[in-house]
Design a protein around this nucleic acid. Sequence first.
DNA 1: CAGCTTTGATTGACATACTTAACGCCGCTG
DNA 2: CAGCGGCGTTAAGTATGTCAATCAAAGCTG
Lengths: 134, 134
Amino acid sequence: MRDGGWSDQVNALGGFIRAQRQMAKLSLREMASMTRVSNAYLSQVERGLHQPSLKVLHSIADALHLNTEQLLQQAGWGGGAGAGAAAANGRAEAAADEAPAGPCSVEEAVRAESRLTEEQKTALLGVYRSFLES
Amino acid sequence: MRDGGWSDQVNALGGFIRAQRQMAKLSLREMASMTRVSNAYLSQVERGLHQPSLKVLHSIADALHLNTEQLLQQAGWGGGAGAGAAAANGRAEAAADEAPAGPCSVEEAVRAESRLTEEQKTALLGVYRSFLES
DNA sequence: CAGCTTTGATTGACATACTTAACGCCGCTG
DNA sequence: CAGCGGCGTTAAGTATGTCAATCAAAGCTG
C-alpha cells in the first residue's frame, strides 16, 4: 500500500544524522572508518536516498554516541500501534512466583544447557519470560 | 569476519518471532497478510536465513502486538553505546552448567512449568529444538 | 479412494542495500 | 602556476532483502 511518507521519514533521518555528524565535526570518511560503512553509502543515507539497515543504523548511533532510541524514532518508529502498555521496564518483575516444580526451573535448565550459545539462551529466556507476563 | 554470533542473533530473532506467531495462533499466510510481507520471506526470517529490514520488523511487531523494544532487543540491540560493557540482564549468570541429559533437561523443565499453557510450551520447545538443529 | 484446503518450504526474478573506484571542487604549500 | 590532500558526490558492481509462483505434505469432506 501506500507507504506514504517514507521519503519524508528517511529524509528526516538523514538530515538528523548529517546534523549530528557535522556537530561532532566528523567528515564522511572519518565516520565511515568508525562505522566500517563506506563513506559513499553514508552520503546517500544522509540525503535520504537509501534506508539503512539495522546494522548500519546501529553503527552510526554507536559512532555518534547517540541514544539508539533517538535514532530509531527519527527512522520512523514513533507510531506504534498500540495499545501499548508501557510496561517495559527492563527491571525485575516484582512478585516472581516460586519455582514451580521443585528442583529444576526452566531458567536453570536453559542456563545449564551446554549445547546452546549465550545468545540462544538469552533469546530462549526472553521468550519464556514474555510468556509469563501475560 | 568476526560476525561470530551474528547467525545466532538472527536465529534468536527468528525463533522469537516464530514463537510469538504460533502463540498468537497465526499461520504464515495470515501474518503475511497482516504485515504485508510475503509468507515466503517470513518463513525465511523465522529460520534465520535473512535479516529483516526495519520496515519488516516494524510490521511484524505491529501485527504481533509486540513491544518494539522487545523485538529490537532480540534483533541484537542489547549492547547499546560503545563504552559500556554489555550485559544488562537482570539476573546474574550463575556458574551452573552441565548435565544436559540429566534429570533436569530443558524439555522436562518446560513441561513441568505450570504457569505455561500447552501452546506456550509447544512454542517454547519449538524454539529450543530449532536451536539444537544446526 | 479422489478431491479440496491449508500448512510451511523452495525457486527464480527483481529491488534495494552496500562497496569499491573513480570524479570534480576547494584550500593549501612550494 | 602545478601539485597535493581533504572534502562530498557519483558510477558501476556485488551482496542481500523481498516478492510471486510453485511445491510436497498433512488435514478434512464426501
